[in-house]
Simulated scan of single mutants.
Amino acid sequence: MATKNTASRDELTRRRQAALATPTDLQPEATRDISAAMNAILADVFALYLKTKNFHWHVSGPHFHDYHLLFDEQASQIFAMTDPIAERIRKIGGATLRSTGNITRLQRMQDNDADFVEAADMLAELREDNKALVSRLREVHDLCGKFRDFATSSLIEVWIDEGEKRTWSLYEAGRRGDRSGH
Rank of each mutant, 00 (worst) to 15 (best):
A36D: 11
H68M: 07
I78S: 03
G145T: 10
G93I: 14
T96D: 08
Y67V: 10
M109Y: 01
D66V: 09
A173F: 14
R88C: 05
D149C: 06
E164K: 11
R179V: 14
E172A: 12
L70S: 06
L50R: 02
L12P: 00
R32W: 03
G93C: 07
H65R: 13
G94V: 06
F116Y: 10
K53H: 11
F147H: 15
A19P: 00
E172P: 00
S60M: 12
N39G: 04
V45Q: 09
T31M: 07
A114S: 14
S35Y: 05
I41V: 15
R138I: 05
T96R: 10
A18Q: 09
S154N: 14
A30S: 09
H56W: 08
A119Q: 06
R14N: 03
K91I: 01
A95Q: 11
E157C: 01
L48T: 05
D149V: 05
G61K: 04
Q77E: 15
V140I: 13
K165L: 13
F64K: 05
A95E: 14
R175W: 02
W168T: 11
R136V: 03
Y171I: 01
F79V: 08
D66I: 05
T13A: 07
A173P: 01
F79K: 11
L123E: 04
M38V: 12
L48W: 02
R16S: 01
S153R: 14
D161Y: 05
Q17L: 12
V134F: 04
W159H: 11
I92Q: 03
M109F: 05
L143N: 04
R127Y: 12
I34C: 02
T31D: 01
S154D: 15
A43H: 08
S99F: 06
Y49P: 00
I92T: 01
D121F: 03
G94M: 09
V45P: 00
D129S: 13
E125R: 02
H65T: 07
E128T: 12
L155W: 12
G101T: 13
A43W: 09
A37D: 04
E139Y: 06
M109H: 02
R127N: 07
D44R: 10
S180L: 13
R108C: 02
W57M: 08
P84F: 15
N102K: 06
I85C: 01
N5R: 13
S169V: 09
R16E: 04
L133Y: 04
R98D: 03
A119K: 03
A36K: 14
Q17S: 04
D10L: 13
T167K: 08
G174I: 14
E162R: 09
M122A: 04
A95G: 03
S8V: 10
